[in-house]
Design a protein around this nucleic acid. Sequence first.
DNA 1: GAAGGTAAAATTGTCGACAATTTCAGGAAT
DNA 2: ATTCCTGAAATTGTCGACAATTTTACCTTC
Lengths: 219, 219
Amino acid sequence: MTQFNENPITAADKTFFQLRSDIVEGQIKAGSKLSEAELSTNYQVSRAVVREAINRLENCHLVERKANVGARVVSLTPEGLAELYQVRESLEGMAARLAATNMTDEEINDLNELLNSHFQTVKSGETYYQEAGDVDFHYRILLGSKNKHLISVLFEGIYHLIRMYRVQLGMAGPRVTTAFDEHRHIVQAISNRDPELAEILMRRHISYTQKNLAAKLID
Amino acid sequence: MTQFNENPITAADKTFFQLRSDIVEGQIKAGSKLSEAELSTNYQVSRAVVREAINRLENCHLVERKANVGARVVSLTPEGLAELYQVRESLEGMAARLAATNMTDEEINDLNELLNSHFQTVKSGETYYQEAGDVDFHYRILLGSKNKHLISVLFEGIYHLIRMYRVQLGMAGPRVTTAFDEHRHIVQAISNRDPELAEILMRRHISYTQKNLAAKLID
DNA sequence: GAAGGTAAAATTGTCGACAATTTCAGGAAT
DNA sequence: ATTCCTGAAATTGTCGACAATTTTACCTTC
């Protein structure tokens, strides 16, 4: 499986990753206030390090900050999720389109192999696919776009927030096999070097995902 | 004219705005190294403030940072410009589409008035339009999308970098009147509440702009 | 002269303390 | 009882100093 290779180097890196994880996974509640002093003692680092971590979280749209007042974890709302998916659909559609042109033959082969390995797990009835497999699939296509800005915005700015919604609204749900078929068709379009079709299929795939999420949001 | 209303509150705010301006306008050369100590003395603030400003610049993609090594102003390359415009075309097209649905009638009226005032300046032969007028136009449509993520990515993450390219490659050029006509048609589509057409026209408009820039890049 | 190693210098990362601002609690006036 | 003011407490913003890391310069070795 693809490694995301986000090696923490400095203490600020570690604190940032830890804080991000704690927020996304719900250890720190959505909407709660982030006290620099408190986090400083909890994570055993100085306030300066915590401040840098919080600044980075702000750029991920995971926290909101007001000058001289402080930072709060974002609140999760149906409108926010809709806005998020609007942007995601457009950007990932673009990623698929660019990937159909810019991925190397070797990268496309790897993508097909990845898909095959997913097929094995799906066929065997394991639930593994949903989580890591889906992320890996989208991540590879994103990288295949070869567009730095696109990669940055999606990977650093949107994916974690989407996962936060999924985790905290309890969406570990199904859609495994149907999503797999959609993935397969997208890869086929990319293999055929058909950018327009790849974009359309990716947008539709994400649109389905959103509708699936929105339906569960009624609870 | 619309105010962008980015009031600096803290010293870090002021330093960030000043640094960003100095980089975009070319006072600090593209590709050059940013020494925290040096900037600290130049801007008369502590290194902590400079560090926070640099961190924010990194999220604007105006500087790149390596742990334990330092920060450099980004380098301007034809490939980078192309990538940037790929993303811009997709996102602003989306903004126009959403704006056609989400702008209020009053906001659309204001947009039409803005266009009329631009028409006066264009007709009178002033060169004013190109710079501030164009930015203002795109900014209003972006706000009209009512999508926080979209607004954030474009306004904080892409516009300044695009301006950096324009300024430093000496693009104060023409395309005034033709661009005005394109703007007019976009506003018409929005006024007609026609999302699909608004997106197509906006994408085409930005595509033209890119080709215009790329042509000048041959120098 | 080139390659590799070592110590000094320079630069970034981290820390604790102080300053500035906001928030909270209590009391006075209407 | 409500509003406004005041001062204390708490929180964020800024600073200078020290630690860790990288870069540079110089020396040794082949």
